[in-house]
Design a protein around this nucleic acid. Sequence first.
DNA 1: CTTGTTCGTAAGTCATAACTTACTGTAAGT
DNA 2: ACTTACAGTAAGTTATGACTTACGAACAAG
Lengths: 103, 103
Amino acid sequence: MTYEQALTALADPTRRHIFEALKDCPKTVGELAHSQPVSRPAVSQHLKVLQSAQLVSVRPEGNRRFYAIKREGLEELRTYLDGFWNDVLSAYSAEIAHRMKKT
Amino acid sequence: MTYEQALTALADPTRRHIFEALKDCPKTVGELAHSQPVSRPAVSQHLKVLQSAQLVSVRPEGNRRFYAIKREGLEELRTYLDGFWNDVLSAYSAEIAHRMKKT
DNA sequence: CTTGTTCGTAAGTCATAACTTACTGTAAGT
DNA sequence: ACTTACAGTAAGTTATGACTTACGAACAAG
């Protein structure tokens, strides 16, 4: 269910950059906004989308809020693609077998 | 490079449905349009996007054109996600180690 | 040669979502 | 207590892209 949200979330370049900026360590909204060519509210809105796609999580600390990569959404996406990949491979080998039988 | 195109291509629901409809066997544009609530030209445009993302391939046969899943784009996307996944895991364990050291 | 499929492209419409600025809220510092 | 820093929300603008209808090209069939 969430793999669709993960796909639409990661489709936007800005959102992907934000997501990738969180790869090594959690960051605050301000930090993320500094490394992006967009305003801070824009980053907030992108983080909201990423959060609803289960791709990031928040940890409030005093005045600031630290965003970090959440594994759930990413794992769902990986699982979906793996399943698709396996289906494609089996369909491919099935077609090979079918052709072998014909000749 | 193409993993970005693959993400934006698979973000659209209609395009994802078309892509998934090709999972078992190659189909023509008309066949795909029949299984979708959109017009045939719309399907053509979606196929164009999928093709530039290396997600599908074409094989003309007389009057018709058979579209099929192409492994390149899907594989690039999988590779990207796998790399990202590994980075996240290593960063996670690094943070754990860091905290262990501190206490 | 004409007719009928099958499909791609062009042009135009419309909805969505990615931004902006302005405002509000909350925690920390003086 | 007031001020400053940090972040989310509201509202409005604008650009993009997902669709439509109309048209043109290529091949098949009569």
